[in-house]
């Protein structure tokens, strides 16, 4: 009887520890979100969206940084997504069981979690060093390289989920493989492919490290891809580390914008993914 009691006691102690771990973890994350929402919303106003980043001690907004982030992110996705989509297509369709696919999958998984600052160094070497100056284009390329692994991964996974019967039915009608992939497989996997794209955008929209030495930063409004370009993460980095209260407030507002964007994208991706699986 004593043994049973000890075992029960030991079990409840362990389980209480688990509940406590969950509680502490969730509270810590709630504290972060709470601080972000509080500081973000108190610093947020219309000027944030309509004015450019101010010199120290003056009021201003984040317009140039928002525009810069939008330009570089969309260009990065425009370059990276097609490459990732086609590579993922090869892995799921033409070369599903080939050696090349196994190797690419392994390398891609490593690139997926590789430190983004290293990707930044790589892009610095191949673009900034060659061109002789920092530029928005280099920033976009760095982001594109971060988009590729995400899109490759989701494309392959989603195409693998498309039932083989669909492809066989199309093949029996005489369609060649290229058309089966583009008109049958892509359509069947569309929600999943869009999910992957959204996740990729979410991934790069908060990336800071690779932008620091590719796009650098720009205090002024600029849409010139051949010149340094401001971005939200880089501006947050610069302003948060500054001693000026105005700048710190703008950093919080920017942080809130990024978080809301990322959360909105991930939630949309999740809803799309859920629709796909429930069908």
């Amino acid at each position: 009887m004593a043994l049973a009691a000890t075992r029960k006691l030991r079990s409840s102690i362990a389980m209480t520890a688990c509940v406590a771990a969950a509680a502490i973890g969730l509270i810590a994350l709630a504290l972060i979100l709470g601080a972000l929402l509080w500081n973000g919303f108190t610093s947020l106003n219309l000027a944030v969206f309509t004015q450019n980043t101010p010199p120290p001690g003056a009021a201003g907004g984040l317009l140039n940084a928002i525009v810069g982030s939008l330009i570089m992110t969309s260009l990065g996705v425009a370059i990276g997504a097609p490459l990732g989509l086609l590579a993922g297509t090869y892995m799921a369709e033409y070369g599903r069981y080939s050696k090349l696919t196994t190797v690419v999958r392994f390398i891609n998984d490593i690139l997926l979690s590789a430190p983004s600052i290293v990707i930044g160094l790589f892009v610095y070497e191949i673009t900034v060093m060659q061109m002789g100056h920092f530029s928005g284009l280099a920033g976009a390329i760095a982001l594109a390289l971060l988009v590729v692994p995400v899109v490759v991964r989701t494309t392959e996974d989603m195409l693998n989920l498309v039932p083989g019967g669909l492809r066989e039915a199309a093949a029996s009608l005489g369609l060649p493989r290229a058309l089966i992939i583009r008109h049958i497989a892509y359509k069947a996997a569309r929600a999943g492919l869009i999910t992957g794209l959204l996740l990729a955008v979410a991934r790069v929209s908060g990336e800071t490290a690779p932008l620091l030495f590719t796009a650098l930063n720009n205090q002024f409004f600029s849409t010139n891809l051949n010149a340094p370009m401001a971005s939200l993460p880089a501006v947050i980095f610069q302003f948060a580390l500054s001693p000026y209260k105005d700048w710190q407030n703008l950093a919080w507002a920017g942080a809130l914008l990024i978080t809301v964007t990322v959360l909105a994208l991930s939630i949309t991706a999740r809803i799309l993914g859920a629709q796909k699986t429930s069908k």
Binding site: L29, L31, I32, A35, L36, N39, L199, A202, R203, S205, G206, E207, T208, P233, I236, F237, A240, L241, Q248, A251, W252, A255, I258, T259, V262, L263, S266, I267, R270
Partner: peptide
Amino acid sequence: ELLAGIPSIIYGIWGMFV
């Protein structure tokens, strides 16, 4: 899972200010 996707710079400024 959603929290896993929050950009690390957010954790950074929380760490510094709070």
